[in-house]
Design a protein around this nucleic acid. Structure first.
Lengths: 350, 350
DNA sequence: TGTTAGCACTCGATGAGTTAGAGTGCTAAT
DNA sequence: ATTAGCACTCTAACTCATCGAGTGCTAACA
């Protein structure tokens, strides 16, 4: 059943007012503040209908109305309009992101900081998942007879390394041989693919020492690949939520904070979300049943996908926040476009 | 002015009781629970004296007494006895630390987790400061004509790398030459030393291309050195404090959480603390005026110093917690002793 | 002189009772 | 269909009385 134009107007007014003031909205204040040309009594009737349809709730008989998750959903899908960012916010984003342009992780973290500063909510940013990254080469470097550095380089320029201590001696030549062998085996394959595959036994030689070396190196190799898959998660502004009336009770605040203490769990949840700006409201979330979670994605080299997000009560400025996140992710994607090497000091760290 | 034996007994009883129950302690309950052989009236008189001397305070006239910072300080310095860890805690520490033995950062993080689980307070762990680490060698690896990997290896086996994009071409030979040159210049010097020193201009050649390459690489080299100096800080169990009556008000809880949102600031503070088990109580802390902070240090290769710490209200079980931290840091130092390479799967990641 | 019993006094916590005000829901008039 | 009017509901805020834990003082006691 569709809502009438007037019902939509009233609903929008209630949402606007409630988002602003965090207090149940009465018919009288709607009639006064928003010029709908009808009396409070009429609004009351409409409110009653809206409540019956599940768009509003009632904390108790003699209180005003509060928008339900369903109302916010309707608002986000149909009612709200993109907001233009204030010049101040735009400037802040541009300045702060470009200041950290040449260091990847720092830029991501700054994005999260910005997001929480502007929205005054809790926010996070994640580096892209590397599952689809492909291996470029593997190198084992001789440090001393029992120590070597294992280095894995991906085709997008990601480098990870580990220092290994062996309990058998190894020579420079052995390491070079094994490097070559591993590179031949794994070059061009994705990390995911390699991790799932059987460990290749063939070293291309049957010299006992080589096999022993391989046996020592492979477990660390796999573990290092796993490390490369780990996305970094930066959370910022968690304490902002203390300023919101929704979290004025210790229990609510505790629940909120505890959720984000489980970083691994949270990361998995966020990785599973779709690309683009995604809004999940209240009950739509598995946990966080009284929070809204908004995520957006940015791209690196036009390909890999990282995420930023905002977490707050369902009562939030959906229009502003989604606009900010869109602007911010566009900006990030632009920053991380494959460069032609003509910017800054001539170097670009990753 | 020294305290009499009986005053010490009473003070100790009050501290024990207050630490346990978080409520002002009255003379009657002391007389009942702790067999001091004197009546409540006598205890009242002593309490009054202790208050005059600054060891106790009074929330209001008709409430019991609460230990002051000064009382806790006396307790920590003179009264408390080391506690033996429970077999359960010992087992937990041994099991959980050895499970992550071969990955340095993970072990550190697990130590923080353990500490917060056992103490039910907020805790942290920091990797060692690398200021005194010395450089072993520097290598520049050719990826393609405009991309290279910069790798810095310290003598203790720490490796850091950065991928650089150049805006001029470079050849394999050029990179090898520069690697050698840089290694000769910096080998054996500490990171601190190198960072403070002037950038060396002499590349050992006056070929223009080499100078240009050097100019591109050096800023990233310095930045990467700075990265190596950064200690990692892991914080765990921040939400534990919500369970304490001290933080049942939102404002207190907020203040607490906000302090730890400033990780950089916190890291600096912690780095400045002395080695060994250090307890700072209430006003003794610059910030955190109503918290107690206990830190302890562990050693890596018997040399570099990392820290773990516990943060909670001044009302905490000083005897248990210091004992746990002593045990835990000893265990960590043992774990990170220079190995003879005969453990585990024959490899050891760092 | 140190210790103790006794007692008046203080002060926060608790709970009951009251009131004010915001807001609804219904009815009847427009 | 809309609206004015009004009775009704419910919470928040306030007051007031009571309770009880605990002190501090005094006087008696060993």
């Amino acid at each position: 059943m569709d809502l009438s134009e007037r019902q939509l107007q009233i609903l929008q007014a209630i949402i606007t007012d409630y988002v602003e003031n965090a207090e149940p909205v009465g018919s009288r204040s709607i009639a006064k503040k928003y010029d709908l040309g009808v009396s409070p009594a009429t609004i009351r009737n409409e409110m009653s209908d809206l409540e019956e349809m599940g768009y509003l709730t009632h904390p108790h008989t003699s209180a005003g109305r509060v928008p339900s998750d369903k109302a916010y959903r309707l608002y986000v899908n149909n009612l709200m309009k993109r907001k233009n960012l204030s010049a101040k916010d735009k400037k802040m984003i541009n300045d702060r992101l470009s200041a950290s342009r040449d260091e990847f992780d720092r830029t991501i973290r700054h994005a999260a900081e910005l997001l929480s500063e502007i929205t005054q909510l809790a926010s996070f940013a994640m580096t892209p998942a590397a599952n689809e990254e492909t291996i470029s080469f593997i190198r084992l470097m001789h440090v001393d007879d029992r120590t070597l550095i294992l280095m894995i380089v991906s085709e997008s320029g990601n480098v990870t390394n580990t220092t290994l201590r062996l309990n058998c001696d190894c020579t420079q030549e052995m390491l070079e041989l094994l490097s070559k062998n591993m590179t031949v085996n794994y070059k061009g394959r994705t990390l995911d693919d390699v991790l799932k595959s059987e460990i290749i036994e063939d070293v291309g030689t049957d010299i006992e020492a080589m096999n022993q070396l391989r046996g020592s190196v492979m477990p660390s190799f796999m573990r290092t690949l796993e490390d490369m898959l780990n996305v970094n998660l930066y959370m910022e502004g968690m304490t902002n939520i203390f300023n919101l009336p929704e979290y004025s009770s210790i229990d609510r605040a505790r629940d909120f904070m505890e959720l984000f203490a489980q970083k691994d769990w949270f990361t998995q949840k966020m990785l599973a979300r779709d690309e683009g700006v995604v809004v999940t409201i209240g009950e739509e979330n598995e946990s966080l049943k009284d929070c809204t979670l908004i995520t957006a994605t940015y791209h690196v080299d036009g390909k890999m996908v990282g995420k930023i997000g905002v977490i707050g009560p369902t009562r939030m400025k959906y229009d502003e926040i989604t606009s900010i996140m869109e602007y911010l992710t566009n900006n990030l994607s632009e920053t991380f476009k494959l460069t032609d090497g003509s910017s800054g000091d001539g170097t670009e760290d990753r």
